[in-house]
Nucleic acid binder design. Structure first.
Length: 610
DNA sequence: GCCGTTTTCGGCCCGACTGTTTTCAGTCG
């Protein structure tokens, strides 16, 4: 079979293979640094901004951090021959199913190796049966109690909760914080971990508790209360599993030295490792407790010579390393440390920068609340404008509007705007509202399966804002899907591409698009790409948002609200944008109304000039 | 296996907690 007859492996395929190699090498007992090297390379490939295999196959070996000559050669080999001998050899040496055992809590590579070589255990089922039959005890390092823990671990694996979407995680975290914060001896409780970094999904909740009495705080945390299991509890940290909920890790810290504790517990792990490497190069060991001076032997000094530097806040800890303050959303070891060293970190967009929202629905299509209720909620939130963008006619499942309904809707919106003007003039503006609030008439325009747009140019030209999206025929080829998206981008009437990847987190994969072409066209035409704030979407992803602005694109941060409460989803969109290094200057709806309308109205000229 | 304005060889982040191999290895975050 000719090499070009099979589809090239995608970045995700490559990442999966190299992670598997890393896991197998670990079970084999290989040097941990080698194992780490494979995992690090896999992660870097997964987030590379280009398709790695096809590029490497034709000799375009663009540098990827953590991918050197050996792993690079393996990518070329796989991309050109469809095979990777090293991987094949490992699979011949040990069953690939062994790596699944590593997912069992409490089971690591050493245990996997022992049960495999000692009992021939190859799969999770093998492990369960062996444990149930009492065959594990007696193996080196495994007692009856350990055997039971392994069984418990397998059970946890079966009913382990999925990662939570960020809005759910925030709500659970707020509840736990409220319970802890009232306890005696607790000065404050800080949410850390991936939630503080505004990751789109959250596994565990990490909370830092400032207290002088860690024993009492941990005892209280462990119960009585709504705690299902307490897998681990020590003197300064503890972890519990909430019933039908996530695991919650708390760590206590003394007052006044929170800087390094917050760094440690907020992560990410990769960011922390990078910071510790910098500290080590400068003669200090960094842990949550602070910076410890290293001696001539490279170990922290002890006794009278020991020197510990602590900081009340995170900024102080960064300053100690000659770094400017890095926002939690950027702490992923994706260039933020170099940027901090050179004082060229972005000034990230904030919720307060947004003047309005360009994507929302009413009960005229598939929303829940009336136009008036949606507008009134947005107005009282202090928006300068809110775009109502009900679905267009062909999306029947969402009760898309035909042209006659669009005309009716225009009159309803005009009447509401007239009322807002009257309120301003009469001084009867509601609390929270700003003068000059305007409800914009928009639509969420369907890009049909054949690539044509769902309203004619004449109707489209009469909207204030047009947000276009692909909902149907998602399984088309990359070429077809890209052509449809580019059609929308190049239309003189389309201002925003809504949820460009069309994904639903944990449910529906991204559309298969040629992203470089999408970014190029969006940048050339001044069409904004949306960062949709609805928690299951958060689309663009943070990585793509960053690629988009680097390609010169504008973005819009929208709620896609279908009910009044969902107008709050802007905050999740802002978090996602910040993870994508987005600044206010990149965001069209951070512009005041007049500037926004000038941008939207200028689209025909912008398109025409290219 | 990767990487280098101290190194192309010799390093590679750090500590808590658990259980057991009673002085430390394995696992985890």
């Amino acid at each position: 079979m000719a090499p070009d007859a099979r589809p090239a492996p995608g970045n995700d395929d490559l990442a999966r293979i190299f992670h598997e190699i890393g896991d197998m090498l670990e079970v084999r007992g290989e040097l941990v640094f080698k194992v780490q090297a494979y995992h690090r390379a896999a992660d870097a490939i997964a987030r590379a901004p280009f398709d790695v295999a096809p590029a490497y196959a034709v000799g375009d070996r663009r540098p990827i951090p953590g991918v050197g000559s050996a792993i690079g050669d393996k990518i070329v080999e796989l991309a050109t021959t469809g095979r990777m001998m090293f991987h094949d050899r490992l699979r011949a040496e040990m069953p690939a199913s062994l790596v699944e055992l590593l997912a069992v809590p409490g089971v690591g590579p050493k245990t996997v190796r022992v049960v495999w070589q000692g009992l021939g255990v190859e799969t999770l089922d093998d492990l369960r049966h062996a444990a149930e039959a009492g065959k594990l005890r007696g193996l080196r390092g495994i007692s009856a109690a350990t055997e039971q823990r392994i069984l418990d671990g397998i059970r946890q694996l079966d009913d382990r909760p999925q990662r939570m979407l960020i809005d759910r995680a925030q709500s659970v975290a707020d509840d736990v914080v409220a319970q802890l914060a009232g306890a005696p001896g607790v000065h404050r409780v800080v949410q850390a971990g991936s939630l503080r970094r505004r990751r789109e999904t959250v596994g565990d909740l990490d909370l830092l508790v400032e207290t002088e009495d860690p024993d009492a705080v941990i005892a209280r945390f462990l119960g009585p209360g709504p705690v299902d299991r307490a897998p681990g509890a020590g003197r300064v940290r503890a972890s519990v599993t909430l019933p039908r909920g996530p695991r919650v890790d708390i760590m206590t810290m003394p007052a006044g030295v929170g800087g390094t504790y917050l760094l440690h517990f907020t992560g990410s792990a990769a960011h922390n490792v990078a910071l510790r490497e910098i500290a080590r190069d400068r003669g200090w060991s960094l842990s949550e407790k602070g910076f410890l001076r290293l001696g001539a032997d490279g170990e922290p000094m002890t006794g009278a010579e020991a020197e510990l530097r602590t900081f009340p806040d995170v900024a102080g800890a960064y300053r100690f390393l000659d770094l400017s303050y890095i926002e939690p959303e950027l702490r992923e070891d994706r260039g933020e440390i170099a940027a901090a060293r050179e004082d060229r970190l972005p000034t990230l967009v904030t919720l307060g920068d947004l003047c309005g929202d360009l994507h929302s629905h009413s009960d005229w299509s598939d929303g829940v609340h009336s136009i008036e209720a949606m507008a009134e909620t947005a107005r009282r939130r202090g928006h300068a404008y809110q775009a109502l963008t009900d679905h267009s006619q062909s999306l029947a499942i969402a009760r898309g509007l035909d042209p006659a309904r669009v005309e009716q809707q225009r009159r309803v919106i005009a009447a509401l705007n007239a009322r807002y003007v009257a309120d301003d003039e009469a001084g009867t503006r509601p609390e929270g509202a700003v003068p000059g609030f305007r409800l914009l008439h928009g639509c969420e325009l369907e890009v049909r399966a054949d690539g044509t747009l769902d309203y004619d140019d004449d109707l489209l030209s009469r909207f204030d804002i047009v947000v276009a999206s692909v909902h149907v025929a998602r399984r088309q080829t990359r070429a077809e899907l890209t052509r449809r998206t580019l059609n929308a981008i190049r239309s003189p009437h389309v201002d925003v591409i809504a949820h460009p990847a069309g994904r639903m987190i944990q449910e529906r994969a991204d559309l298969d698009l040629d992203w470089e072409a999408v970014f190029e066209a969006a940048a050339a035409t001044g069409t904004a790409l949306e960062i949709n704030g609805s928690p299951p979407r958060l689309d663009l992803s943070a990585e793509r948002a960053r690629q988009a602005i680097e390609a010169g694109c504008l973005v819009a941060i929208d709620s896609d609200a279908h009910r009044t409460t969902e107008l709050d989803s802007l905050r999740w969109g802002v978090g996602q944008a910040r993870r994508g290094w987005v600044e206010a200057r990149h965001v069209v709806n951070a512009r005041p109304l007049a500037d926004l309308l000038a941008w939207a109205a200028g689209k025909p000229q912008r398109v025409g000039s290219h």
